[in-house]
Computed example of a mutant assay.
Amino acid sequence: MAYRLHVWIHQISPMIWRRLLVRSDSTIADLHYTLQIAFGWSDAHLNLFHIHGQDYGVYHDGGTSFSTDPDQVRLCDFRFRINERFRYEYDFGDGWHHEVRVEARLALDDRRTYPRCIGGNRRAPPEGCGGPLAFMARRDAVPSHVEDLLEDIRDDLAANDIEAVRDRGEDIEALREWLTLDEFDRRGVNRRLKQYATHDDSWMWQ
Rank of each mutant, 00 (worst) to 15 (best):
A104C: 11
L20D: 04
S42P: 02
A159F: 08
I82D: 13
D161A: 01
S24M: 14
L193K: 07
A29G: 08
A164M: 13
V22L: 06
I28Q: 02
D110P: 09
Y196C: 12
M1Q: 06
D77Y: 00
G95N: 10
D25N: 05
W17H: 15
R168G: 13
R112D: 10
V102T: 05
A38Q: 12
L31M: 10
E103Q: 08
Q36V: 05
D71E: 07
T27V: 03
D55E: 12
V100N: 07
A158I: 00
R123Q: 06
R191I: 09
L75V: 01
P126E: 00
T198R: 12
L181V: 01
D25A: 02
L108D: 12
A124I: 03
R168Y: 11
E173I: 05
Y33T: 02
D55L: 11
Y33N: 14
H60L: 07
N190V: 07
R79F: 04
L179R: 14
G93M: 15
A164L: 09
L48E: 10
R176D: 09
D55K: 15
W41C: 13
D30L: 06
L20W: 14
G169K: 14
G63F: 10
V58C: 15
T64D: 06
G63V: 01
F49K: 12
D30M: 06
L31D: 04
R87Y: 11
R116N: 14
N83C: 06
D185C: 13
R187A: 05
I9Q: 11
D55M: 11
I9Y: 10
D43R: 00
A124C: 05
Y114K: 06
A2G: 02
W205N: 05
G95W: 13
Y114V: 08
R176S: 11
V102E: 01
